[in-house]
């Protein structure tokens, strides 16, 4: 019996994009309810051991208190630095990597999943959306997601049968720690990180996209509306914004449209590096994250070495096919 990891980001779904755009507020009581449903689903399908990020808002711990835990089911809170920042998620991921977790439930947006993967790149994830930019996580019923977690923990479903390894962008910056992005890495002419969201289209310089999704919002849609790239494609897309470029009207955030000028668009092979030079600000998965100083070099590459992501529909289809929940006569 393997363990199940549980991560709920208390900060997801609350940033300035509810104000500058028209994004929804995702309150923490709803996240707590999602955890309860997921845990119920997991226990119903046989899960007995959970390890969880002891988040600063107590989402998972409060959810556990609110459910009737059957005898033999154990929950372990992982020590947390409680910085109320992405570092808490990364620290939890690092610990889960050595706790025999078959699969991890991550509640958050693209940024939360990025923070997790920084701590455990090879994890197998069930990512449910409780964030703003939600290309990586999916909207799905937590009860069903929990059932899949339980089936994977008990060995009824194997990760290799229901999960796919996704693309990732690796970023190296001269003299500083490396970084990564799961969906998009964008260079801007901003001069500070501030409230993080990418709201000023005039400041966009270049973008490297793992996925260019025309049916999503945010940076991924900029490429998606020109040259869609799916996660199944073994390449990415590089956009250069230019005053002389073609006008593109796109949803840069929830309910927030902008007209951008795209100078060039080209496919990027896995072995090809995109080089940039500071000063600039780098945004990963929709949020400004790193300031690059004058003359500092940046290299970005795409590869299929990201985490494994579970396809919930595929998993439940396989569950039905294997009759995992059907009692034998």
């Amino acid at each position: 019996m393997h363990a199940i990891g549980l991560v709920a980001n208390p900060a997801s779904g609350k940033d300035i994009r509810r104000l500058a755009g028209k994004a929804s507020v995702f309150d923490n009581r709803e996240k707590l309810a999602i955890v309860k449903r997921a845990v119920a689903g997991a226990i119903a399908t046989g899960a007995e051991r959970f390890v969880y990020m002891n988040d600063s808002h107590g989402i998972v711990s409060e959810a556990i208190k609110a459910i009737r835990v059957p005898r033999g089911v154990r929950f372990e809170a992982l020590p947390s630095p409680k910085t109320s920042s992405a570092m808490d998620t990364t620290a939890a991921a690092e610990q889960m990597a050595s706790r025999d977790c078959a699969v991890v439930l991550v509640l958050g947006g693209d940024g939360t999943n990025r923070a997790f993967v920084k701590g455990w790149r090879g994890a197998t994830l069930v990512s449910l959306s409780t964030g703003t930019n939600n290309v990586f996580p999916v909207m799905a019923e937590a009860t069903v997601a929990g059932m899949v977690l339980g089936l994977m923990a008990t060995g009824g479903l194997k990760a290799r049968s229901v999960a796919r390894r996704v693309k990732i962008i690796d970023v190296s910056i001269d003299g500083e720690a490396d970084d990564l992005a799961l969906i998009d890495a964008v260079a801007t002419s901003d001069t500070f990180i501030g409230a993080r969201a990418l709201l000023d289209p005039d400041r966009l310089k270049e973008a490297l996209l793992c996925r260019a999704e025309p049916a999503a919002v945010g940076m991924t849609s900029l490429g998606g509306l020109i040259r869609p790239v799916a996660d199944e494609d073994d390449f990415g897309l590089h956009l250069v914004f230019s005053k002389d470029g073609r006008c593109l009207k796109a949803p840069i955030g929830p309910g927030l449209f902008a007209t951008l000028k795209v100078g060039s668009t080209r496919k990027v092979r896995f072995d090809h590096a995109i080089a940039l030079k500071g000063p600039l600000v780098l945004a990963f998965d929709g949020e400004r994250e790193r300031m690059v100083g004058m003359g500092q070099n940046v290299r970005m590459t795409i590869s299929r070495t990201g985490p494994w992501v579970v396809d919930l529909n595929q998993a439940m289809q396989l569950c039905a096919k294997k009759k995992l929940l059907l009692e034998s006569n």
């Binding site: 208390p10 609350k14 104000l19 507020v25 309150d27 923490n28």
Partner: peptide, 19 residues
């Protein structure tokens, strides 16, 4: 009982943001 006071904004019909 809430950890983000901003969560209360929805109850009044105004946006709430954490920064």
């Amino acid at each position: 009982a809430v950890t983000d006071v901003a969560d209360r904004a929805a109850g009044y019909g105004m946006p709430g943001v954490v920064v």
